[in-house]
Design a protein around this nucleic acid. Sequence first.
DNA 1: GACGAATTAGACAAGAGTGTCTAAATTTGT
DNA 2: ACAAATTTAGACACTCTTGTCTAATTCGTC
Lengths: 229, 229
Amino acid sequence: MKLNVSPDTIPPRGHEAKRVSIMDAAGKVFCRESFAGANIDMIAAEAGVSRQTIYNHHGDKENLFVAIVRDLTERCNAGIFATISTFPDQPKDLEADLIAFAVRMNRNCVCNRDGKFLRKLIQTEGERYPELFAEWREQGPGQTWPAIAARFARLAHAGFLDIEDPDVAARQFLALANAELQTTFMLGGTPDDDEVLQSATHGVRTFLRAFGKRQSAADAQEHSPLTGA
Amino acid sequence: MKLNVSPDTIPPRGHEAKRVSIMDAAGKVFCRESFAGANIDMIAAEAGVSRQTIYNHHGDKENLFVAIVRDLTERCNAGIFATISTFPDQPKDLEADLIAFAVRMNRNCVCNRDGKFLRKLIQTEGERYPELFAEWREQGPGQTWPAIAARFARLAHAGFLDIEDPDVAARQFLALANAELQTTFMLGGTPDDDEVLQSATHGVRTFLRAFGKRQSAADAQEHSPLTGA
DNA sequence: GACGAATTAGACAAGAGTGTCTAAATTTGT
DNA sequence: ACAAATTTAGACACTCTTGTCTAATTCGTC
């Protein structure tokens, strides 16, 4: 079943191995060196492939670059939506569940390889390829922010939160979740698990101080009055 | 007094005009094209100067780049500290004063030409010049975050805010202030005054919902009970 | 007006990168 | 094992860029 998927479009099979190897290496190199700074020989060497093979597959450098960005955009968005689907719609422990969600969001969408690469390519080359990155903008933030906002609206409607504008709250939630990772991101670093957890914990606590129900919660569980301190 | 400053190191004066013209153009071009993508002829043309003049002034391309980053770092930090000194230590209207401060911070340090350029250069070339950007990190975030944290600590001590960890609060304040400008920043755009004000207003409101005093404020003025809604 | 310093245009060599081409070697499916 | 497709190494022309050099020109100062 898995061996002969679409045997007419995709030629043999080793072909595909080379292809992913090239995409892999090209992403890494474009990201590290920028489009102008990257050269095909570098990518070929890193992919363990001859230069000619890259030209066979992608035609020219610009074509390769566009393919990389499209690929990263697609994979990142898939990851984001997969993560959004784990949003705690019926939280048992609101703080813990939101922290866990924030950590997942950061780990699976922002700090992972694809997220880091896509972010850097957008920052570096975004101005040069307006329509390519407009595509990202529409499918990325344009889709994910409303999706998260909808989840927060539902949570508010269910009485767990006190939110007026779910769009604003969603953006602020994400901003708070990685408030402490900004400097690391700037220099292209990857925060470790501890940093991610710290930032998410502090961010969610502040978020709940702002938007959490005071006491008249619909979920009258054993919620301790965490307003204090 | 101002005409002949240090007449031995800095030669004449038209010299200086060329110098700033070069720095100006080089910043613009490096930022737009990345280090590898920029070329000296482009910069010379944009500066209205011959290529040779650039080599006379800076020796080579890398030297020029380093000079640009140093210059931007210095000017940005000066701007940040100048802005921090306008922090509302004795607020009349806490919300309005913090919003105004957040707007100043964004307009003078983040959205202006220097801030935009420096941010982009750090993102794009940071990994390639570790010690150069370590310098930025130490003088920039390493100095400004504690400075803002100290102001918030003072504000908390004076009874205006309810903050446990001023460092965390400071980072979150900044993150909230431009939570809604992230996408624009990503693509190298410059948010207009309205966007900046919007983001700052929403950010500060959330910040105060989280860290504002409920009612036992030391400043028992005509503070309306804005906890509601 | 004259002197010295700085700027300029242009040519230049040297190097690096892109994209093409060819012939040989390898891999793949049958 | 055979035939087709793919990959490979290497050479190649072409372009672009850097950094240097030179001679002429312009600019600021005295």
